[in-house]
């Protein structure tokens, strides 16, 4: 009786290894109540308080209320937190946790990484589903198909963002709190993704003037989107550039399309970024994990 070979090269696939690393992520998530509370509090703060608060001033965006408009954004915020928290845990894991035990084992690094990423993506789906529960209360009707498609998008978004987090964490020497990640990574990605303001900026969003429907249509043909009693103009070019450079913008845009039927970026780009990027990101993350352990 000898130990069976789980090794098919360092970049091999070992389903049992993927499975056990995935199970570990899920067990850890299940035992950390604070994450669920974070998701609930973000939903309340952003979707209900900001949604209805700003929604009182901004009557509508393309026919959607402000709360409806930011629903996909709040889901994205939860996905960002879930993915990055689970990814950045490897800094900790490497110094005082299980990761060294994993790295000295013959298990292939790609499988270890995949288990981690799939776990992060699943947690993202759970965390991202919490704002979905509020959808009926803000007037978004969801069919099972909508929800299913949203889960698919959220899952792949979670995969990419967890991989991004792993790549980032592999370069962190020390970790003394999540604050830097939250302020330095999550918030820029969130604010620069078209999550809380549309790609074309708002002017005169106060709804005391009614623009006739035919005028709205005409303006739309010129690329000017009306809102309530006002209209949109383009965002400053530098913000636009940042939004276009942010992969989260495309994932979020697809999520908004799936949930509300409204989107602002080229759909082909949305689909490509959402479904092709995770595969690239996974390999880069596996290489980063390998590199991280070799440089200690």
């Amino acid at each position: 009786m000898r130990a069976g070979p789980p090794v098919i090269g360092r970049f091999g696939l070992a389903p049992a290894v993927i499975g056990v690393m995935y199970k570990r992520e899920m067990l850890r998530y299940g035992r950390d109540r604070s994450q669920i509370f974070g998701a609930i509090s973000r939903t309340i703060l952003w979707l209900l308080i900001l949604g209805f608060g700003l929604g009182a001033a901004l009557r509508e965006i393309e026919g959607y209320t402000y709360a409806q408009y930011i629903l996909p954004g709040v889901i994205t915020l939860n996905v960002l937190f879930a993915s990055l928290q689970s990814a950045v845990a490897i800094v900790w894991d490497r110094e005082v946790g299980l990761l060294r035990e994993v790295m000295v084992s013959p298990a292939p690094i790609l499988s270890v990484t995949l288990g981690k990423l799939l776990g992060g993506a699943t947690i993202a789906v759970v965390q991202g589903s919490i704002p979905l529960l509020v959808a009926p209360f803000i007037g978004v009707t969801l069919t099972p198909l909508n929800v299913l498609m949203a889960w698919v998008v959220i899952f792949f978004m979670g995969l990419t963002l967890t991989a991004l987090g792993v790549i980032l964490a592999s370069r962190l020497k020390t970790f003394e709190g999540f604050g830097a990640i939250s302020n330095g990574v999550i918030q820029p990605l969130y604010f620069l993704s078209g999550s809380i303001f549309p790609l074309r900026g708002v002017i005169g969003g106060v709804g005391f003037l009614q623009i006739p429907e035919h005028l709205r249509d005409e303006l739309r043909r010129l690329g000017i989107y009306t809102i309530g009693g006002g209209w949109f103009v383009e965002l400053p070019i530098w913000i636009q550039a940042l939004v276009y450079a942010n992969p989260v913008s495309y994932q979020l845009d697809l999520l908004r399309y799936v949930l509300l039927g409204f989107q602002q970026l080229p759909l082909v780009a949305d689909v490509l970024v959402t479904f092709a990027l995770p595969f690239v990101a996974t390999f880069v993350a596996a290489a980063a994990m390998r590199r991280m352990m070799r440089q200690r």
Binding site: M1, A3, G4, P5, P6, V7, A14, A16, V17, G19, V20, M21, R24, L27, R28, R31, D32, D93, E95, V96, G97, L98, L99, R100, E101, V102, S105, P106, A107
Partner: peptide
């Protein structure tokens, strides 16, 4: 320094090891 997952039980930690080393199910 301990290389254990301290949110998991002792049994769960050992199970991970068994899988990482490809020990038969």
């Amino acid at each position: 320094d301990p290389a254990l997952d301290d949110r998991l039980t002792a049994r769960e930690n050992l199970e991970i090891h068994a899988v990482l080393y490809g020990m038969p199910r």
